Computed example of a mutant assay.
Amino acid sequence: MIRYALLGAVGAVLFILLFAMPHEKFSLKGKIFASLFVILLIFFAGFFERSNDSEAAFRRDLLLKFEQGGNIRCDKFIINSKTFNYEYGTASFVAKDKNHGGDEGLAGVSVDIQSCEARSEK
């Protein structure tokens, strides 16, 4: 929420600076055009932040289910903490090898978290 307030404050400062400039240096048409550009820029930045927030919440929910031992459907696999590890660097689930309790048929399988569904499997 603070990020949205910060975007608004930056926009307000830009408008104040823009309209404080004398007309000789920057015409009224130029100021209006620049104002529209700043409004669009702030709108798209806010839209990006909102979609980024929802994606982060989706990942947090999936990881919470995974870490609590629940099953998650990803592509054609059912992911759980008994047969998969989560790799934070690549944001993917990697199958455990046979020596660590994994299934031999899943050896080398890596599943991106973005391929997972919001609903969990029982």
Rank of each mutant, 00 (worst) to 15 (best):
Y4L: 15
A5Y: 13
A5L: 14
A5D: 14
L6P: 04
L6N: 15
L6G: 13
L6Q: 15
L6V: 15
L7T: 08
L7Q: 09
L7E: 13
L7F: 14
L7H: 12
G8A: 08
A9W: 06
G11C: 05
A12D: 11
A12F: 06
L14T: 04
F15K: 03
F15A: 04
I16C: 06
L17C: 10
L17G: 14
M21D: 02
M21S: 06
M21A: 09
M21V: 11
P22R: 11
P22E: 12
P22F: 04
P22K: 12
H23C: 02
H23G: 08
E24V: 14
E24G: 10
E24N: 13
K25C: 07
K25M: 13
K25G: 11
K25P: 00
K25V: 13
F26Y: 08
F26V: 14
F26P: 01
S27M: 04
L28R: 09
L28S: 11
G30K: 02
G30L: 02
G30P: 00
G30I: 01
K31S: 03
K31W: 00
K31V: 07
K31R: 14
I32W: 08
I32D: 01
F33G: 12
F33V: 15
F33N: 14
F33L: 12
S35H: 05
S35A: 11
L36W: 07
L36T: 09
F37C: 09
I39N: 00
I39W: 06
L40F: 13
L40H: 03
I42P: 00
I42L: 11
I42G: 01
I42Y: 07
F44V: 07
F44M: 13
F44G: 07
A45M: 08
A45L: 09
A45I: 02
G46P: 00
G46C: 06
G46D: 05
F47L: 06
F47N: 08
F48A: 15
S51C: 09
S51N: 15
S51E: 15
D53F: 14
D53Y: 14
E55C: 07
F58Q: 12
R59T: 04
R59K: 11
R60Q: 13
D61Y: 08
L62G: 00
L62T: 00
L63N: 01
L63P: 01
L64G: 07
L64M: 12
K65V: 09
F66P: 00
F66N: 01
E67V: 01
E67N: 12
E67S: 05
Q68P: 00
Q68F: 02
G69K: 02
G69Q: 01
G70T: 03
N71F: 11
N71H: 04
N71W: 03
N71P: 01
R73E: 13
R73W: 03
R73V: 03
C74Y: 02
K76I: 10
K76Q: 08
F77K: 15
I78Q: 04
I78R: 02
I79E: 01
N80M: 05
N80Y: 01
N80K: 01
S81D: 12
S81V: 09
K82P: 00
K82F: 05
K82V: 03
T83G: 08
T83C: 07
F84L: 05
N85T: 04
Y86R: 06
Y86M: 03
Y86C: 04
E87G: 00
Y88V: 15
Y88P: 13
G89L: 11
G89S: 10
G89E: 11
G89W: 02
G89H: 08
